[in-house]
Design a protein around this nucleic acid. Structure first.
Lengths: 188, 188
DNA sequence: AAGATAATGTGTACAATGTCAACAATCGCA
DNA sequence: TGCGATTGTTGACATTGTACACATTATCTT
């Protein structure tokens, strides 16, 4: 349901119907619809992590150029590319993953991890650590850098999927993705 | 209703109740709930424009430093600051304004304009024109620059009010706002 | 093995919502 | 004056979240 219609489509009664039980059975497992939605959101974040790991693996698999700075940049681009690929391929899951209120502190929760064991936030963090290690991110700018990079790609994703940029052509989105990543790379 | 609870809180029956008419009277004015929501969204965008104009007026009113580049930068920061101030002060309206699917082409629609007659998109566009005029935005990067700057601030806004960054302290948000604007300024 | 205790599921019920169809009043204009 | 368009009303239906009371099944202890 989340996949097809996003958070609003996660409807408790329909879930029980598909499970072949009565509506109220759900209340033995979730306090209310919100709790169910949060659980689905966690799983959706895991899927996002998977999509990101795919792109990351692409550049890591190439075993690097030998230059730590170049590799780190490629890695961060892969993280952003994966995030936005997920937004485009699975808009329902994307919104379910990242449009359900939560606390930053929970971003490390294992329930939100993908198959590789990392949450989306952790994947992003690792890429930024590589930047810092390669010396292309001054130490005084490392703090909370996740939030800034995340904001840029998240904003593009939301505008395109669920906002005033809906219906942008695929090429436009491709271009915008590349340009937003350029901006992050230069501006971080 | 949008102010208090965002798009989901815009409920047709309650609207008619407050108008003192029967539920179905709404169908003489709006095709369905979606149409009502779109109309509310337009108005909310006008409010966003107002919030942005306030910040813009602050820096314009200072009649500038004389340096076009410095002024242009201050203007763009004001646009971003206003956008995020609106997100924080009126999260319900913000989400109603920018989380309702629409087409980029409609971003100039007069129905979305604030009291000063400009839509949020037009305000942003003007600030970027000033950048180009001041020579701090190379011509080849001017195209669609709105989308990239917009993505960054929009992402932060959404993450903070409706996503995994909910409950960030006010200082953290202040800091993140400044840093995201720094990033845009450097990276655009 | 037997019984207590927790877990899970069922039925009925209620208030709310979006929306459809048919009907009524009102207003503007020829 | 009368007619068409605009606006509103009544009644109805399917769907949803959720509360309460009750039944069943697992599980664990004695």
């Amino acid at each position: 349901m989340a996949q097809l219609g996003g958070p609003d489509a996660v409807v408790l009664r329909e879930a029980t119907r598909r499970a072949g039980v009565s509506p109220n059975a759900a209340y033995r497992h979730f306090a209310d619809r919100g709790a169910l939605l949060r659980a689905v959101s966690d799983i959706a974040q895991g899927r996002a992590a998977d999509a990101m790991e795919v792109e990351v693996a692409c550049v890591s698999g190439a075993s690097g150029t030998g230059d730590a700075a170049t590799d780190a940049r490629a890695m961060l681009r892969a993280v952003g590319t994966g995030y936005l690929a997920f937004a485009r391929d699975e808009p329902g899951l994307f919104r379910t993953a990242f449009s359900v209120p939560d606390q930053l502190a929970n971003s490390f929760d294992a329930a939100k991890a993908g198959a590789a064991g990392r949450t989306p936030f952790q994947i992003l963090s690792a890429a930024l650590d590589a930047w810092a290690a390669a010396g292309i991110l001054p130490p005084e700018r490392r703090a909370n850098a996740e939030l800034y990079a995340w904001s840029a790609v998240h904003g593009l994703g939301m505008l395109v999927i669920d906002g005033p940029l809906r219906g942008l052509s695929a090429q436009m989105i491709d271009g915008a993705t590349a340009r937003v990543l350029d901006m992050v790379e230069r501006g971080l």
